[in-house]
């Protein structure tokens, strides 16, 4: 007695279980993707408004002074001597002056969007791999039944 792959799949109820698992997974991926994207967009909007507000009223951390407290204080290079385009050496500027130059919303939006796209692509790939593995499994069972 020989069975076709379709018959084996039907007989073993593989497709039905596979379908349920796939839909469950799809739903989970879609929800996580949507949550990440929503959180990224909303979060970035909230954070941008927070930045604008804090730029107007500097918070207490700005009051931290730059005391070195050395026994024999070293003489670090004067930031004014350094070229103005030297990055990472903003030791003279205002604590909150740069907040306007932080493109938080687009950066977080891009991050959220790209993450969602990766989740979606990986989910599709996983689905494809699982389908291929189910077909292989069914073919193996069919081959065994043939013998």
């Amino acid at each position: 007695m020989s069975m076709t792959v379709e018959q084996v799949i039907k007989a073993k109820n593989i497709q039905i279980r596979g379908d349920a698992a796939t839909w469950h997974r799809r739903f989970a991926v879609a929800s996580v993707g949507a949550t990440v994207a929503a959180a990224a967009i909303l979060g970035s909007l909230i954070l941008t408004s927070y930045d604008q507000a804090s730029a107007a009223a500097p918070i207490s951390a700005a009051a931290v002074s730059a005391g070195f407290g050395f026994d024999d204080p070293p003489a670090p290079p004067n930031p004014n001597d350094m070229p103005m385009d030297m990055p990472g050496m903003d030791m003279t500027g205002d604590s909150h002056g740069a907040s306007a130059s932080r493109p938080l919303a687009p950066v977080l939006g891009t991050f959220g969007g790209a993450t969602s796209a990766v989740f979606f692509a990986a989910g599709l790939m996983r689905r494809k791999d699982r389908a291929a593995s189910l077909v292989k499994k069914a073919a193996r069972i069919a081959g065994r039944a043939k013998k």
């Binding site: 954070l47 903003d90 604590s95 740069a98 932080r102």
Partner: peptide, 12 residues
């Protein structure tokens, strides 16, 4: 880092 004070000196 992303949303706190913009100056390293003040950023936790």
């Amino acid at each position: 880092l992303l949303a706190g004070p913009s100056k390293a000196h003040d950023n936790a």
